[in-house]
Nucleic acid binder design. Structure first.
Lengths: 262, 262
DNA sequence: AAGCAATGGTTCTCTGTCATACCTTATGCC
DNA sequence: GGCATAAGGTATGACAGAGAACCATTGCTT
């Protein structure tokens, strides 16, 4: 029994992209904003994505140790077994290395110079909605800069200055990391945890895109001037200026990326 | 065996909130932006949250039918069994009603006048970081308005006008819904799917908060003027004005909420 | 040298979820 | 009236993942 009788359920349902036709009452568009998959992958994939974020953002620089498996799995709310599968993948990719014993742990390895045979990179980029990323990024950055300028504490002031200084002293191969850290600091000082978290996600995507294009010293210097201007505006408690400068700064990166990926 | 011997794993780890102490090298803050739970709940809870969004946003108004169980489960990427558990909860809460047979389905019931014994409401609000919500909302709204003003298509123009008109004709009990729809339209026209999705989420939270305070006609009229001003700025392709007006508009709601929830 | 503590490595069981198939009910159309 | 259809309702087998307990390795402390 249970042969090819009436396969009742689980039909393709024409196309799974659009919920309603044009029924005239319930709008077809808005539903898609909410009715998106509850989970982006098998849970293991999602954890992998987050640990990758950690590396792409440079929050744990090469040579440093990740939090222990027990800590990480608790933070990510996945079992240690699943987390270890994630780490296994990263080990196979030569991105991290695990050492046992006390004071052991999982350590970040320096980036091996892009072994991807060109095809892999383009495939990753194709999977990203570049326009979405750039626009969303600009919105978050400008908003964060504005919020910072409105309610910056003395402690925040210190952190911001520190982050800016760090970008100045950074060597070329460390610049992207310090740049990321500066922007991440701004996002955190915005006073919205959600904003910070979302920025972290979009920035990880952005860094992945940026890895595909050359880092020009000229752009870097320009970028650095803009950083200074943004921070200055924030320290002056001038939200409008901060937002405006940040938008300009983001526009630069966006133009660069659009140019290279066109 | 397996008694109270050495309970090796699964220790409380002092406190699960902060990853690193003040180790001096790896910053303690930024890690938290990324190391957040992979899944907010047991997957069933997350689905429940999304269906609740659907209702709170008024995307499916009272009396209307939700997408069929098969469709919904496919969109949310959960099994029909799990989805039915979600719907079961909503049925028990008298929020939806299921009817069998062809042209049956799950229908949204009109809101039963807040049966919560006051305690429930406060508990829900306490679970929300109000400041986070308000700030993040303002950032997204202002950003969306700006992006809209920059690249509005003819079709978008029509949708925007339509949404604004709908708010004008709305009766008092339907106003919140039309208001939400207008803002959601703006978010979608921003050209960033991520922005739209995030706005939907934050707006659902906001609506939940707004349900706790009275709807004053005076505020409503003021709100309506601001809506018109924002839309006008967008139609004039004036991003700065659009952003500025939207920020003002959001500021009004924020002040109202802060006042009532103080 | 011995012991302790923190880490990665392994194995087990049990629950939640998925996929699939099938049943039941109501409606419109012929 | 009968049938096709679309919806909700139900049952079951397989599997991924969580949780807990354990083992193995290392380096610091005594």
């Amino acid at each position: 029994m249970a042969t090819s009788g009436r396969a009742d359920d689980t039909r393709p349902a024409a196309r799974a992209g659009e919920a309603e036709g044009g029924a005239g009452d319930t709008a077809p568009g808005p539903l898609d904003s909410v009715l998106r998959p509850v989970r982006a992958g098998n849970g293991f994939e999602e954890a992998l994505e987050q640990v990758l974020q950690l590396l792409r953002l440079g929050l744990v620089p090469p040579g440093e140790r990740l939090p222990s498996e027990r800590e990480l799995s608790q933070h990510l709310r996945i079992s240690r077994v699943t987390l270890r599968e994630v780490l296994k993948v990263l080990q196979d990719q030569n991105m991290v290395e695990s050492r046992r014993g006390r004071y052991g742990g999982t350590f970040v390895l320096p980036r091996t110079a892009a072994p991807d045979g060109d095809g892999e990179l383009r495939r990753r980029i194709a999977a990203v909605d570049v326009e979405d990323t750039l626009r969303f990024r600009e919105v978050l950055e400008a908003g964060a800069a504005g919020l910072c300028a409105e309610g910056l504490t003395a402690e925040g002031e210190g952190r911001l200055r520190g982050a800016l200084d760090a970008t100045r002293g950074a060597r070329l191969e460390d610049y992207r990391r310090q740049d990321t850290l500066l922007h991440l600091t701004l996002a955190e000082l915005s006073g919205s945890r959600t904003l910070a978290a979302q920025y972290a996600a979009v920035r990880a995507t952005l860094n992945e895109l940026l890895d595909g294009i050359p880092l020009l010293v000229r752009n870097l210097e320009h970028s650095q001037q803009q950083h200074a201007a943004v921070v200055e505006a924030v320290l002056d408690r001038d939200p409008d200026a901060a937002r405006e400068m940040m938008r300009e700064h983001c526009g630069g990166t966006a133009a660069l990326l659009r140019g290279f990926l066109a």
